[in-house]
Design a protein around this nucleic acid. Structure first.
Lengths: 240, 240
DNA sequence: TTTTCTGACTGGTATAGACAACTAGTCATA
DNA sequence: TATGACTAGTTGTCTATACCAGTCAGAAAA
C-alpha cells in the first residue's frame, strides 16, 4: 500500500505490485475504473510518468486496459494470464480441481545420448539427470514423465524431487524459466506404458515432448511424457 | 528513415516503424547491436524518453532485447511471433514446407444442436454453416475438419470457401480475430475416419477442438478436427 | 607483468512540466 | 427542445534533465 522511496526496489515496480494486489484481492473488480494517473501520483508522491510506467507494464501483462479520455480499467478477461501459461503438471491439475500426486520411479545420473545432448546443447556423454515419474490425479495414473536435466547446470537432490516440483528448485537456485516449446502427437500405448497407466495395450495416448529454456537462453530440461488419451485433454489459448 | 514532426502520427511510432523496417530488411542482423538511445535521440532530434518509448514497444513485441551497460540488440529468436501463432491449416503447412490443399466435402446450412449453440452463444436451432473439409499436405490426407459458423454473423459463399481460407473472408467482412482456445486429445480412428485419412482402423489420431473469438467478443466458429497421428505433430511455444 | 582504478560508454529510474486528444457533463443560446 | 460552446477530467505524447547501475577498455599503480 505504502511505497518505500528508500528501497532499492524501483518505485514503479512497487506501485505495480500494489495495484496487482488490489486486483487479486478483489478490491478492484474487473471492469471497474482504477484511480487516475494523477491521483496515484499524488497519493504515492511520485511523478505521473512513474505511475505510467507501472500501469504500462500491467497493461502489457493484461491486467489493465486504458481508454483515452475515460480512465484505466481492470481487464475483464484474464486471457493473458493463462494464455501462455507454462505450468507444471502440479499446477495444471490443481487448476482443474484434481488432487495431483507424483510417484518417483527412478532418479539417476546417466550419460546423455546424442539426441538428448543436442537438444540440451551439451556435449555427447556429458552427465545428465534422468528422472522418471508417474503422475497421478486423484490417485489415478495420468501420465508417465521422463525428465532430463544437465547435471552441470544445477545440482538436484532426490529428496526434493520427491515432494516439491523441479521448477521451484530451479527458481531457488537463482535460475528463471523463460519459455518452452512443446510438441504433441497421438500414439498408442506400448505394453509397458499400458501397464503403468492401467489402460489396455493399444489404447490411445498423447505424447508430449517439452523443451524448457531459462532466461539466460540455456536449455533447462527435456521432458518426454505419455498421457492417457481417455483421461487427459490438453488445453491451450492462443492469440492472433 | 526521416521522421516527420508535423505528422499526426506519434514520433515514437514513426521511430518504431523505422527500426522494424531496418530489421526486416536485414540491415540489422539478429544479434547485432543497434544504435544507442542517445544516438537515436540526437539523429532524430527527439528526446531520449521518446526513443525509449519506441524501443520499449519493440522489446515487448520481441524484436529487440536490452542489456544494461551493453546496448540494445536485435532478438535472435522471434519467439513472440510464432509464440501465439494462431494460424490456419494453410499457414501452418506452408510454414512447415508442405504444399497445403483442401478438399471441400460438404457445405450446408443446418440447425445448431444444443452443444454447438452453447459454444457459439446463439439460440438452439439457430442456423449455422457446417463446412466439412479434408486437409491435405503434399496431396496426402492429413486431417478431417468440420467447421461451424453462425449464419447470422457472416454470409459465407461456397465458392470462396473452396479456394480461400475462411479467415480471409472474415477479415474482409470487417471482423477481426482475437483469440482461440483449443483442446487436444489422443484417440483412435473410427471406421469412416480411417477410410478418409487412408489409415488403419484403430490407428492413433489427434482430436483438436478449436473455438475462435472475434475482437468484439463474439464466437466466430467451432472447429472439430481429426488429424492422423502418424503424420501430424502439434507444435507450440509457451512463455512462463 | 599483473592488478587496480578511472572514465566513458551503455541502459534504468525518476522528476516536473507542457500541451494534445478525447469524454462527458453543464449551461447558454437559438 | 435541440444545438453548440465551454469546462473539468481523463489518458497520450513529448521534452529536458538528472542521477544510478552495469560494462569494458585503457591508463595508472603495484
Amino acid at each position: 500500500m505504502i511505497i518505500d522511496k528508500t528501497s532499492p526496489v524501483p518505485l514503479y515496480y512497487q506501485i505495480e505490485e500494489a495495484i496487482k494486489l488490489k486486483i487479486d484481492k478483489g478490491e478492484w473488480e474487473s471492469g471497474s475504473m482504477i484511480s487516475s494517473e494523477r491521483e496515484f501520483a499524488e497519493n504515492y508522491e511520485v511523478s505521473r510518468m512513474t505511475v505510467r510506467q507501472a500501469i504500462n507494464n500491467l497493461v502489457n501483462d493484461g491486467y489493465l486496459t486504458r481508454r483515452k479520455g475515460k480512465g484505466t480499467f481492470v481487464s475483464g478477461k484474464k486471457i493473458e494470464q493463462k494464455l501462455l501459461g507454462l505450468t507444471s503438471f502440479t499446477e495444471d491439475m490443481k487448476a482443474r480441481g484434481y488432487k495431483p500426486a507424483s510417484k518417483l520411479v527412478s532418479f539417476q545420473t546417466i550419460q546423455a545420448n546424442h539426441q538428448i545432448a543436442k537438444v540440451l546443447e551439451i556435449s555427447h556423454n556429458n552427465e545428465i539427470y534422468e528422472i522418471k515419474r508417474v503422475r497421478l490425479a486423484n490417485d489415478v495414473p495420468m501420465a508417465i514423465e521422463t525428465t532430463f536435466v544437465p547435471a552441470q547446470l544445477i545440482h538436484l537432490q532426490e529428496s526434493h524431487i520427491q515432494d516439491g516440483s523441479l521448477y521451484s528448485q530451479v527458481e531457488q537456485a537463482g535460475f528463471h524459466i523463460d519459455y518452452a516449446t512443446q510438441s504433441l502427437e497421438a500414439s498408442i500405448a506400448r505394453e509397458k506404458e499400458s501397464e503403468i497407466l492401467e489402460i489396455a495395450k493399444g489404447a490411445p495416448v498423447l505424447l508430449i515432448q517439452r523443451q524448457t529454456y531459462l532466461t539466460n537462453g540455456k536449455p533447462l530440461e527435456v521432458v518426454h511424457s505419455v498421457y492417457r488419451g481417455d483421461r487427459y485433454k490438453f488445453m491451450i489459448d492462443m492469440k492472433r
